[in-house]
């Protein structure tokens, strides 16, 4: 009941709120941007778990404001250790958001386990998965793609909610510059009434 109320209160003003104490999934090229956007919207310590051999690292100066000093980076070797780390971090109460990048598809059993851990620790989890490697146990699944910008200073993304256990799905185009938690939605019509380039 609590989840539903929170979700509904959030859904009205903010379609991108993740239901608390649940595990969610994000796929697509812009999934790390989506994860950082969520990190900026969560108060408290953050945990980012990525396999040791992945070359990508978050770059401190590029992170949204206030995220860098709260972020803990775990780099376990092997999928078992990674899932163990996710479960342990989800189970601990002070962590507000756990971001993890599993390499293989998460099985239904593992997914359920993570959901139970998230409920036990009242922590939100976000798995950044390869395309179509999702688990059925997930609460929501997002597909995040960066879009080419029509104007010079905009950084549009398309974030579509493809699966939602307790609500409707949808697709949004928004501008988020990666600096703070603020964003602005682009009109759903998606058609500009002014020329793309300002008249000279």
């Amino acid at each position: 009941m609590l989840h539903d109320r929170l979700r509904h209160s959030n859904q009205a003003d903010m379609p991108f709120s993740l239901a608390p104490a649940r595990v969610h999934e994000a796929e697509g090229h812009g999934r790390r941007a989506f994860a950082l956007f969520q990190a900026a919207r969560h108060k408290g310590p953050l945990v980012w778990i990525l396999p040791a051999h992945i070359p990508e690292r978050p770059m401190l100066r590029g992170l949204p404001e206030g995220v860098g000093e709260r972020l803990h980076l775990l780099r376990p070797e092997g999928e078992t250790d990674l899932l163990w780390c996710v479960e342990e971090a989800l189970r601990s109460a002070p962590v507000s958001l756990v971001i993890a990048e599993p390499e293989k598809p998460v099985s239904l059993t593992a997914g359920r386990r993570l959901q139970l851990a998230a409920e036990a620790g009242r922590t939100t989890g976000l798995l950044l998965i390869r395309r179509d490697a999702g688990s059925n146990a997930t609460e929501t699944r997002w597909r995040c793609e960066p879009l080419p910008a029509m104007a010079a200073d905009s950084t549009p993304h398309r974030w579509s909610l493809n699966k939602n256990k307790k609500g409707t799905t949808g697709s949004w185009v928004l501008n988020w510059d990666g600096a703070s938690a603020a964003f602005d939605l682009v009109a759903a019509a998606g058609e500009r009434h002014q020329p793309a380039e300002p008249a000279r």
Binding site: H72, L73, W84, C85, A89, A93, P94
Partner: peptide, 27 residues
Amino acid sequence: RQDDALADLLSSLGNRIGFDRVQRLLP
């Protein structure tokens, strides 16, 4: 108490995957 709980989490993570793999970003 939250700091304590976070330290406990880092301890248990570090004991399994190694303390050098539980990292923080410093400027």
